[in-house]
Design a protein around this nucleic acid. Structure first.
Length: 472
RNA sequence: UCCUUGGUAGCUCAGCUGGUUAGAGCACAUGACUGUUAAUCAUGGGGUCACUGGUUCGAGCCCAGUCCGAGGAGCCA
């Protein structure tokens, strides 16, 4: 007997065929003559309905068929007599693989996302998280497809890094030293020579610098791996451990960089619309239902599907930082007045996206608010940075053309007090056969946030790590 | 980290100006029901009111501290 996954069976019209399914019970209902069991095996958003004739299978056998139980059902695939589904299973045999007693926390009703976060080990069994995790998978595949099709090489950069000068945020220390009995130098500083690597090491905050090394050899590379920031950030957009995609491309200037970023985002969204249609439709409907419980002022003006299509079909607005400030000055009253030289506030970003109604790429930021490695413009004031601003999630990509001139890069590091010794290997790329190159970083969870229409990154990663939370 | 807000049954919430024995819906259990769609109907078991201390004749409610959640801000992806 064929053991098919439910997503396949639901598409089948092979009525009369004997099949077996294994999965988890979502709900059971019925009367003393017939029972209906919704079984889901994770293969898709839709469950299959097993119809149990109680004259053939005694009610006693159904006792353990409760929400959450794992069961195996054998039966005949038939056209459904009821509404609501086209295919169903006429049960001939039923087996309990793993029972779930009444303490099983998931009920056949909607739970709050906050509650589900507390039971992150069980939330994949819900429709919402099943959909999100499947979409997350397809998006990861899409990332690899996109770059592979364009001749990029997938580069695995180190998770443990000795580099502490990246300036991308607070880092998590990696050590095997006994914290209760630390070795000290004569000047009371900690003697890291006795640590595992013989030096201070941390978890990576970015694979970019290593990516640049490979780009100046392989031409076009990308990284896709976990990234760690020890910032005490408590927002729906930040995680202490998240996944980032960082392409790095030789012979690409800032415009080429924007072209790749825009094509990439559109590719990902189209890929999602194609490969995760059912799950996206489920999440779209879910968001509309959720909205009905909200106050009118808090409701979303667009649906998830509308937002996805908007991004997939429209050319992004490209604007310099200086132009953006001008737009903002004419825009409206902000809590923080836009001022040239200061970083854009969240309210400013939101205004720009609202104003143009499409994703916005802001370029050429003042050098004072950007990282040391960004290419300096001729005006002496700005650098070739670019941020891609998205509706709903804000900054989804941050990138730049890199400074490839050895002297200028070295001078900028000196200005910003970045110790040259620690990055001599990085400067070597400019010393030997340097070339213009660019790259950017895409926050994977922010992408998933946009695609799923969820509103907290903690709900789009299986096990979120945030300040005071590393359960599971 | 700052500001705002919240923590009452397994879940979602109500609980008046501080006053007798703490309320509902869902879930669960039992029963009814000839194909249900979060099935429906009836019955009834279920509470350390986040924690610690204080005010009071009396605290779920008032005060202080602590812990945890959410929203906004900063940091950023």
């Amino acid at each position: 007997m064929e053991n098919l996954r439910i997503a396949e069976l639901l598409k089948s019209s092979d009525f009369g065929k004997e099949v077996q399914v294994k999965g988890w019970v979502r709900t059971k209902r019925g009367n003393k003559n017939v029972a209906f069991i919704a079984i889901n095996d994770g293969s898709g958003i839709h469950s299959i309905q097993a119809v149990v004739d109680l004259s053939k299978i005694p009610e006693e056998a159904l006792r353990q068929v409760t929400t959450g139980a794992c069961i195996s059902v054998r039966g005949t695939l038939t056209q459904s007599q009821g509404q609501g589904q086209t295919v169903e299973l006429q049960t001939s045999a039923l087996e309990i693989i793993g029972a779930a007693d009444e303490t099983f926390p998931l009920q056949k009703k909607a739970h709050t996302l906050e509650f589900l976060r507390e039971i992150a080990h069980l939330r994949p069994r819900t429709n919402t998280f099943g959909a999100i995790l499947r979409i997350r998978h397809h998006m990861a595949m899409a990332v690899h497809h996109f770059f592979n099709e364009r001749g990029f090489f997938y580069l695995q950069t180190p998770v443990i890094t000795g580099s502490d000068a990246e300036g991308a945020g607070e880092m998590f220390r990696v050590t095997t030293l006994d914290l209760k009995n630390l070795p000290y130098n004569e000047d009371r500083s900690i003697d890291y020579k006795q640590d595992f690597f013989g030096r201070e090491t941390n978890l990576t905050v970015s694979g970019q610098l290593e990516g640049e090394l490979a780009a100046t050899a392989l031409g076009q590379v990308y990284t896709f791996g976990p990234t760690f920031r020890a910032e005490n950030s408590n927002t729906p957009r930040h995680l202490a451990e998240f996944w980032m995609i960082e392409p790095e491309m030789a012979f690409h200037d800032i415009t080429d960089n924007m072209d790749v970023a825009e094509a990439f985002l559109k590719y990902l969204i189209r890929y999602g619309l194609e490969h995760s249609k059912d799950d996206l439709e489920f999440l779209n409907t879910r968001a509309i239902e959720e909205d009905k419980n909200k106050k009118e002022s808090e409701r979303s003006k667009t649906t998830l599907m509308e937002r996805l299509n908007l991004v997939a079909e429209n050319t992004f607005k490209r604007i310099t930082y200086t132009e953006a400030i001008a737009v903002l000055e004419k825009g409206k009253k902000f809590e923080f007045r836009p001022e040239w030289g200061k970083d854009l506030q969240k309210e400013h970003e939101n205004f720009l996206v609202d104003h143009f109604k499409i994703p916005v790429i802001v370029t050429d930021y003042p050098k004072g608010i950007k990282a040391f490695y960004m290419k300096q413009n001729e005006d002496g004031k700005t650098v070739r940075a670019m941020d891609v601003l998205f509706p709903y999630v804000g900054e989804i990509i941050g990138g730049s053309q890199r400074e490839e001139n050895y002297d200028k890069l070295q001078a900028r590091m000196k200005e910003m007090d970045i110790p040259e010794e620690s990055l001599s290997w990085y400067l070597d790329t400019r010393r030997y056969g340097t070339c213009p190159h660019s790259g950017f970083g895409l926050g994977f969870e922010r992408l998933i946030l946009f695609i799923t229409g969820m509103s907290n990154v903690r709900d789009v990663i299986p096990f979120p790590r945030t300040p005071k939370n590393a359960d599971f």
